[in-house]
Design a protein around this nucleic acid. Structure first.
Ligand SMILES: [Mn+2]
Ligand SMILES: [Mn+2]
Ligand SMILES: [Mn+2]
Ligand SMILES: [Mn+2]
Lengths: 158, 158
DNA sequence: CATGATTGTTAGCCAAGGCTAAACTGTTTG
DNA sequence: CAAACAGTTTAGCCTTGGCTAACAATCATG
């Protein structure tokens, strides 16, 4: 099929599915995704540290490493970054703590994560699948969509 | 844990929101996300190349660069990777084409992308927001969730 | 209180995915 | 048909986020 293959047997000129979005808009889609990827891991770390602090009272590098399924060296390096970003405070060989800013990020990340997770469950997705999907999706859900998801979930549970 | 600090004062055992998932499951969440990130960009390139071929008859590096809002050098490097992966064929200074395998990937990516996009619109999300969110979310939606989204969308449009 | 186990850090490696600058090719056009 | 221009490639750089191996600190325990 050098050109067009059958495609419908008798179709008029252009029946090639949805059109391409205008260039500017299309570009903005990919840019937004790239931006999300820059903060994604940071958010997951901060959120996890917050959760460990809330549930365990402390957040050790070793716990983060096993929860994230990543080496301790990787965690150690990332902790320095979080420190440089002013999100955590860490004395060597001691538990981590979140700065004010880190706490704020942890809360908003956790809130968003929960909205997505509960939405997926309300949609009918199996819990463990919902958890996996939410872990990735959360970073790519706009505020607009988030609000709609929340409304949907509330409506469903009533 | 050396010290614990206060940590509880007087509250009943656990009032710290949802519990942490069991370690194995939690680790699997992050692993799945990392895996998705490995193939994500590849899929977007292949999908875009497929769309350009369908809509324009050819896929030039310059078009990809402007659509992705990325430098031509970046595209050129990525094309070599796609070539090495057996997803595209490319003669220097000529338009790209998809291999069989590339076409298969383009189709399944496009199909999944569309399910997510149409689902978001059916949910009530504004079109341009839906496009942005779908571009990121698509790579983190399991088959299970995808099927549910599709059913939801169909049901909504009837 | 010495010592082994656990935990944390550092050094050095790698691949992916960006970038700019410079060189090269192909096409258009005066 | 020679330039000029547009498109493509290459070289070299950078950051992120992984890894392993070696070393260092802390903690538990006999
Ligand atoms: Mn999260
Ligand atoms: Mn996440
Ligand atoms: Mn896509
Ligand atoms: Mn995408």
């Amino acid at each position: 099929m050098s050109d067009h293959q059958q495609q419908r047997t008798s179709s008029p000129p252009s029946l090639s599915g949805d059109a391409l979005p205008p260039l500017e808009q299309h570009a903005r889609q990919y840019e937004t995704v790239r931006n999300a990827h820059e903060t994604e891991l940071i958010e997951d770390y901060v959120e996890l540290i917050g959760d460990l602090l809330r549930h365990r009272g402390e957040a050790r590098a070793a716990d983060i490493a096993s929860r994230m399924a990543v080496s301790q060296a990787t965690v150690s390096k990332m902790i320095r970054r979080l420190n440089d970003l002013g999100l955590v405070t860490s004395k060597p060989y001691r538990s981590l703590f979140l700065t004010e800013e880190g706490q704020k990020m942890a809360e908003t990340s956790r809130a968003r994560h929960n909205v997505v997770l509960h939405f997926l469950r309300a949609l009918g997705v199996n819990d463990s699948t919902a958890r996996i999907d939410a872990e990735g999706m959360e970073h790519h859900v706009s505020d607009e969509t988030l609000a709609i998801m929340q409304r949907f979930t509330e409506q469903q549970n009533s």
